[in-house]
């Protein structure tokens, strides 16, 4: 990577695994679980969060020297809320059906702890370019988990990926269904999202013993 120095590249790659916002920092769980029944919704959510966090981090970082520390939470909320309104309006204009599926969870990006967490922990103390990279990196780590969970829930739950019937047709009994495979409808219900994330954490921590809590 010629464009990025080693330190900058680390800002992007760290949150993907060893410092993942969802499985390690425990931030932004709410939306991660609620909208992952379909892969498409997960991807849109990941992109929206990336846009908000990337831009928001830069804005906060530019203002870091003029924000009085006592009212910083309100300032941060206003910045996020303004960005989320833009995302929401864009989604309503270009992907109306999808914005219906996501319903209130687009609005809940405002209180997504990843955003406030990164503002507090990083953007308030660092330069705009680093903050931008940190924002993109953390949103990518968040999106990665979202997409993994969405992939398994949609594949096992409805036998489709992004709406394509990859396992064959359950009604006409083609593909896997011909040999007696059935969809596990339970995967589409909310409790399974929690259990899938639990299993991801389990796998990650058994591979990297340093992350184990006592």
């Amino acid at each position: 990577m010629g464009l990025l120095s080693k330190k900058d590249a680390k800002l992007i790659t760290d949150p993907l695994a060893d410092n993942n916002p969802i499985t390690i920092q425990v931030l932004g769980i709410c939306s991660a679980l609620a909208i992952t029944a379909e892969l498409k919704a997960s991807i849109v959510m990941a992109v929206s969060v990336m846009a908000v966090l990337g831009i928001g981090n830069v804005v906060i970082s530019l203002m870091r020297n003029i924000i009085p520390s006592k009212i910083r939470i309100i300032v941060q909320l206003v910045v996020v809320a303004a960005l989320v309104i833009i995302v929401d309006q864009v989604l309503k204009a270009f992907a109306y059906e999808l914005s219906k599926t996501l319903s209130v969870f687009v609005g809940l990006i405002i209180t997504n702890c990843i955003i406030m967490g990164r503002f507090e922990a990083f953007a308030l103390a660092n330069k705009p370019w680093q903050s931008f990279l940190d924002g993109i990196g953390n949103a990518a780590g968040y999106g990665l988990i979202l997409i993994i969970v969405g992939f398994f829930r949609e594949l096992l739950g409805s036998g489709t990926l992004l709406g394509f019937k990859v396992l064959g047709d359950p009604i006409e009994k083609t593909g896997l269904y011909a040999i007696g495979y059935e969809n596990n409808g339970f995967m589409l219900l909310s409790p399974m999202a929690l259990i899938v994330v639990g299993i991801i954490i389990w796998i990650q921590r058994s591979r990297n013993k340093a992350l184990i809590e006592d």
């Binding site: 499985t23 425990v26 909310s190 409790p191 399974m192 999202a193 929690l194 259990i195 994330v197 639990g198 299993i199 954490i201 389990w202 921590r205 058994s206 013993k209 184990i212 809590e213 006592d214």
Partner: peptide, 17 residues
């Protein structure tokens, strides 16, 4: 060990749900 803390909390919450 790998489930301690966060992992088991997620799974319990799933079961409670």
């Amino acid at each position: 060990p790998a489930l301690r803390g966060l992992g088991i909390t997620f799974i319990i919450t799933g079961l409670m749900a």
